[in-house]
Design a protein around this nucleic acid. Structure first.
Length: 478
RNA sequence: GGCGCUAUCGUCUAACGGUUAGGACAGAGCCCUCUCAAGGCUUAAAUACGGGUUCGAUUCCCGUUAGCGCUACCA
């Protein structure tokens, strides 16, 4: 049974790339009857924030995918320290008493590649122990083999066979001088202890993996299977960053923007992965059934947002597809809070009647507020009376159509068939086209030209509001 | 700078040596139609560049270029 983990560090809100990593892990776990583990990698106490942790849970809860086990790295530092000790005892690590370089930029980059601090590796064990016992701060570094150059290898499930020479791997830190484990150490210690079988994570960790392989080797354990995911990047090719791209990369922006969680999931899955059978719209279960490492790409994927629109057009289209295929009761549930938070006084029963009329007319749940507003308000917002005048018609025609409609509508039952035939008959009597008859009425009751089909709209609106609004329109034209 | 990874329409992608290089979104046009949508049809649009290997390269190899990643006592 595979055991996979999603291991975010709480240093910013949950962004779309992290969410996709979670989703791919989740899919793999569900596909293979495995265990999904959520582990908070919070060993960098200075940078962790509660707000960030909240944001991770908020995003994950919205996605509604869940996990089977939960851990916090900060509660497991003893394990990491013991692991460090094991490596030190084996002589595969050493204490480096060189003072920390406060500014990373100070490290010479253009000169020879930095591999280790001079003198530190050669320190005798006795002196190292003595200085440590005396309380002198040190950083514990992995002793990467230097006498014999060899390749460190692993086989990535996505990127294939990988290898890097030890001559190109620096003596990376395991323990900081404040005794806290580094990401590399804590991550490997936990992955080993939690018996993680597959590490599915962003490609930005691909080169880190060589260090991790070295740690697993030192521990004498078989490394997990690695599967690295191509990165999600901005339209200009740059890395998605919270700082540069702002809220467009946050999962909650999609939630608040009116996405359905399964649609969001569908979209991010299609970024860097393909079912290879031209499928686009897929349900959660279909994604689970289709998921495999073979379908994962190796090149980065652009998520196509812009200044005017924070959402990729394909994401919006997919969301519309999911909305169209949602059962009406469920869609009403989803729509109601958006209508209410837009300030409309609407209950579930009424929402449920409006829902079928807007289902194929909205792409985002938020659009309920702009597409169905006239159903919810008591009085229509002011509109241009010229809108009431039909195609190839004039004010007189509009007035005639409205008055005729009013007469008809005050008598017949508000039911689709009756409305249809009566209004069409009225148009014939006036010797105008049906469209010329319908448009003034539509604008009168909706306040605009573009709206759902007229008869269904009238049914939902009811006789009183309809007649009232027609009267109002007649008044505007006179 | 060093090391690693990547490279098919504007974007997401399919084609695991032989296809008129396919699909989707976005764009354009037509049809349907009470408007708007939805739907149907049509259209434009790509193998970064240069060398090999091969009867034959989008596909395999090398180089160039470009992009990204790592190169922290961040993760």
């Amino acid at each position: 049974m595979p055991r996979v983990r999603f291991a975010p560090s709480p240093t910013g809100y949950l962004h779309i790339g992290s969410a996709r990593t979670f989703i791919f892990n989740w899919l793999y776990a569900r596909r293979n009857s495995g265990t999904m583990i959520l582990r908070i990698d919070d060993t960098d106490v200075e940078r962790n924030t509660q707000a960030s942790l909240d944001s991770i849970f908020e995003g994950l809860n919205w996605l509604d995918l869940g996990w089977d086990e939960f851990y916090r790295q900060s509660e497991r530092v003893d394990l990491a320290r013991a692991t460090a000790q094991t490596i030190l005892d084996k002589g595969l690590a050493y204490r480096d008493f060189t003072p920390a370089v406060t500014d990373a930029e100070d490290k010479p980059r253009d000169a020879a590649t930095w591999l280790f601090n001079p003198g530190a590796r050669e320190l005798s064990l006795e002196e190292s122990d003595r200085r440590a016992a005396a309380g002198e701060p040190f950083v514990l570094r992995y002793r990467v083999p230097r006498d014999t150059v060899r390749g460190v290898r692993f086989n990535d499930a996505v990127y294939g066979p990988q290898s890097k020479s030890t001559a190109d791997i620096e003596d990376f830190a395991l323990l900081r001088s404040n005794r806290m484990p580094t990401y590399h150490l804590a991550s490997c210690a936990d992955d080993s202890d939690l018996r993680i079988s597959h590490i599915i994570r962003g490609q930005d960790h691909l080169t880190n993996t060589f260090k991790h392989v070295l740690i697993f080797e030192a521990l004498g354990v078989e490394p997990p299977q690695f599967a690295h995911l191509p990165l999600l990047i901005a339209p200009d090719g740059s890395k998605l960053s919270k700082r540069k791209h702002g809220p467009v990369v946050s999962v909650t922006t999609y939630r608040d923007g009116g996405f359905l969680p399964p649609a969001f999931m569908n979209f991010v899955c299609l970024l860097g992965w393909s079912p290879k059978n031209d499928r686009e719209e897929m349900s959660r279960q279909e994604l689970v059934d289709a998921f495999s490492f073979e379908g994962i790409n190796r090149s980065n994927a652009v998520i196509n947002f812009s200044d005017d629109d924070p959402f990729d057009p394909k994401a919006v289209w997919l969301n519309a597809e999911h909305i169209r295929h949602l059962p009406l009761d469920e869609l009403s549930n989803q729509l109601l809070p958006f209508a209410q938070s837009a300030g409309f006084d609407v209950d579930w029963g009424y929402m449920r009647r409006v829902t079928p009329l807007i289902q194929e007319r909205i792409r985002l749940l938020t659009e309920v507020a702009t597409v169905a507003d006239f159903f919810f308000v008591e009085h229509l917002a002011p509109y241009d009376p010229a809108e009431l005048i039909p195609q190839k018609g004039d004010r007189e025609m509009a007035l005639a159509a409205l008055k005729k409609s009013r007469a008809i509508l005050s008598e017949i039952p508000f039911e689709h068939q009756a409305l249809d035939s009566a209004l069409r008959a009225g148009a014939a009597e006036l010797k105008v086209k049906p469209g010329q008859m319908f448009q003034p009425v539509r604008v009168a009751v909706c306040g605009r030209k573009n709206a759902p089909p007229l008869f269904e709209t009238l049914e939902v609106l009811g006789r009183n509001k309809t007649l009232e609004r027609i009267d109002q329109a007649v008044g505007m034209l006179q």
